[in-house]
Amino acid sequence: MSGTQAGEGGNSKVKRFMIVNRKAPYGTIYALEALEVVLIGAAFDQDVSLVFADDGVYQLKKGQQTKDIGQKNFSPTYRALGDYDVEKLYVERESLQARGLAPEDLLVPVRVLGSTELSVLMEEQDVVLSF
C-alpha cells in the first residue's frame, strides 16, 4: 500500500486487528469503549474485524431502550460501522443459540460462524483486542 492512501495515522503497514466482544452492554462499559477502539482502528486504515461471542452477542440485540437506566443507547453506532468501512462483523453461532437468539434478532447484518470456523479466523489475525 502506498502512503498516499494512508488515513489519519499515515501508516503504510496494514495489520489484521480483531476486536473481540464477549460482554453484554450497559452492565459494564467494555462494549461502549470497545466500539470507540473500532472507530479509531478504522480511521487508521487497518483491516478491522469484530467478533461477538458469549454475552457479547447481546450488544447487537434489536430494540434497546436505555432511557430509564440513564445511559446512552449506543447500539445505533453498530449500524453506522459500514460508513467507516468496518464491514467484517462475526457472531458465534453457539453463543447465539445458547441465548435463544437468531440473526433476525440482531440490529445489523452479520456473518454467523460456528466455533470452529471462528477459531480459524481468530488465528489468522495479527492483533487481538479483547473487551
Binding site: 464477549r22 461471542a53 458469549d54 470452529t116 471462528l118 477459531s119 480459524v120 488465528e123
Partner: peptide, 11 residues
Amino acid sequence: RDLESCLRLTR
C-alpha cells in the same frame, strides 16, 4: 465460563 469459551474457540 471464560475458560470454557477459550477451549471452545481455540484449536
